[in-house]
Design a protein around this nucleic acid. Structure first.
Lengths: 215, 215
DNA sequence: GTCTATATCACGATAGAC
DNA sequence: GTCTATCGTGATATAGAC
């Protein structure tokens, strides 16, 4: 599903030099795309951040779009795998605690990738049209069934499951995407590990209780 | 506080033609900035969307930055006024219900402006540095006191108020900013009024109960 | 595998005719 | 108040020497 969108990527085995340089370039691209978006990003800025001549970027990646897709795939894979672990057989409290913690860990560890994704969606996702297909809808619906089952078992309230998932996504990604505003509100330069732990604690508590789970 | 950042704006009285054209241009700029971000946006695209020659944009607005700031000010004013209405003397349930409804109404009525703001924050807010000053921090802290008072009165749980505010912001703005993803997940082209009402209902219920308010 | 040089085009902004 | 023409800059991408 994700591979389709990135199917043009070079699957060459690649020597150690290639692998290392590609990783350096992707990290640089992540920062540039996060700061300036797809259209605003320049290959030159990426090259400078990577510490490589501009032409080398074109040597390793066909064009700006391919580089961009590469960055997007990384974060989507991460998020999807975390959601796939949500299991209807687990207790809601434990399962949600773990999922929220995982999403918050991503927000802390990969904020740049999260921001690139967010900007793409904000733009109307013109470069991810295939990803948001019927297949996506079906995958999403399977995921929401976890909450439906919990509701049927009387473990949580009967709330439209889709909106619970959106709440989980929005509240956790916010700490990566809006970090500048949050830090300013708290009077800090940037968020510490402790800030993230506090936020995780609050979100876990509020959401688990909010959906009607009775400890 | 907001005016400072936009102090270079032309406060000329302006005839009817000017006022009308300025509004058309701002609406076009909103769409262009939402789609492509500040760096990615082009004055030409704005002109085409506005149905005016490119030079006219420069006639009414000094440059791209001024036009951008204008768009930002609109949405920030809207949001700030809504938050300023949150009153510690009200009952938590009624006050929060109203605030969430207002924020969701903005998400539905002004999604483009919300996205321009979101992209600016995602970029690290380089064009809003003055806005996120000590003054902002103080304003934010005053707003959080509403929740502290409610907690002191035993009306809600003793939860770090800042994170409650972040939750309110993230969960409501998500429906404007990530509309494409949400619509795809729900198998729709775009979100209807009913979708927004359902979401508002869920958020209101989950958050009010989540912070420990006992009806 | 790496870099220089350059072709080609689109950008923001302005000058100046109407 | 409106439009055309254009300047100067910086963008993606590639060709080809090393």
């Amino acid at each position: 599903m994700l591979m389709e969108i990135g199917s043009h990527r070079s699957d060459k085995p690649g020597g150690r030099i290639r692998q290392k340089n590609e990783q350096i370039i992707i990290a640089a691209a992540e920062a540039e795309f996060a700061a300036n978006g797809f259209k605003g990003a320049t290959m030159n800025n990426i090259a400078v951040k990577a510490g490589l001549p501009k032409s080398n970027i074109h040597y390793y990646f066909k064009n700006k779009l391919q580089l961009y897709i590469e960055v997007l795939i990384n974060i989507i894979d991460l998020w999807d795998n975390a959601l796939n672990e949500l299991d209807a057989d687990s207790e809601p409290a434990a399962a949600l605690r773990e999922y929220i913690a995982a999403k918050m860990r991503f927000s802390r560890e990969y904020p740049l990738a999260s921001r690139v994704f967010a900007k793409e969606i904000l733009s109307g996702a013109p470069r991810m049209k295939q990803y948001f297909s019927d297949e996506y809808r079906e995958w999403f619906q399977r995921k929401t069934e976890v909450f439906s089952k919990w509701a049927q078992q009387g473990k949580i309230d009967d709330i439209e499951p889709a909106h619970i998932v959106f709440l989980l996504w929005s509240s956790t990604q916010h700490y990566a995407d809006f970090e500048v505003q949050i830090a300013a509100a708290l009077g800090k330069k940037s968020l510490s590990k402790k800030d993230f732990e506090e936020a995780t604690e609050v979100l876990t508590k509020v959401i688990i209780r909010g959906i009607g789970y009775q400890g």
